[in-house]
Design a protein around this nucleic acid. Sequence first.
DNA 1: TCAAAGTTTCAATAATTATTGAAACTTTGA
DNA 2: TCAAAGTTTCAATAATTATTGAAACTTTGA
Lengths: 168, 168
Amino acid sequence: MELQEAQMQFIQTWGSVGSSWGIPRSMAQIHALLLANADGLSTEEVMEEIKLSRGNVNINLRELINWGLISKQNKLGDRKEYFKAEHEIWSVAKRIIEERKKREFVPIQNLLTELKATKIVGPKAKVAHFKGLVEELDAFLSQMDQLSELLVKMKNNRFFNQFIKFLK
Amino acid sequence: MELQEAQMQFIQTWGSVGSSWGIPRSMAQIHALLLANADGLSTEEVMEEIKLSRGNVNINLRELINWGLISKQNKLGDRKEYFKAEHEIWSVAKRIIEERKKREFVPIQNLLTELKATKIVGPKAKVAHFKGLVEELDAFLSQMDQLSELLVKMKNNRFFNQFIKFLK
DNA sequence: TCAAAGTTTCAATAATTATTGAAACTTTGA
DNA sequence: TCAAAGTTTCAATAATTATTGAAACTTTGA
């Protein structure tokens, strides 16, 4: 199979998985393209490769920078900007975990914390059930939080493998 | 705060978090509503509580059943169907993990497995980089897979807490 | 058997989200 | 300083996804 074709398959799959994950398809595709290339690509090259408009590419490159998944590069004697992916897979995972945590974890945790501290009035049994749910969810989420902290600290496969072996 | 109001906050938050997670807002809201109520609710009651159309409620209840997050109940001498959430938080998590794995993990893993087995032709350095990416991603994903297996087996907080304590 | 109660389906529509592309803006170096 | 190269913005539009609501269908028990 041609490299070109293999890359395209990767980009398409990453794009559609990303979009069922709540990450815009184009953003995921651009990310996949940059992961697949050791060197940085220019906006122009990205547009060319995945057939996206300039505006779209620009916006999503910026977003990927915000996520810390890619960075700008300058080439000597060239005034274009090049974009290069973070290639270390554990760092990539770390960034994604942290970003999603910020967006999706924190709001629900805040609500739960608030609800835990609030006196709720209503039929006794119903209030008890609801309070119970809040407590349990909160405990569960803080455990997931701890787990993610651990994951993020585990900087590579070797570490992880020991950890897993240990638990089996 | 009135129970009613607290529940509504919970339902709204769960809905919006869900939707940034790629789960339809209504589905997440219905789930939250059922979690918040110890007893099962009828279609009618769900429509009433979260102001959704009959069709929408019907479709999303069915989807929640597919996910294994709720189940149908019948009440003696009443021909309505009632829907009751799985309330055990670890089971809920397990179901969600398994369902998402099926949808989002498997396709990318299949592609990676295929790409690993394929001879790719092209400029040597580029092919090497791409192959390297495929290998690393595949290894990473199978580790996450193992981790999720572990999580799913851990049936409650107690277990998890020991596990975490152990690793600190 | 049949009407009432309840459930499901699905085409039409609404809402949301992503994308385009051209115009405005910025930076660079001759 | 100014034109060329490059980047950013954003209103308009397209694409996608969710929702409605009415009609069709199913089940139940008198």
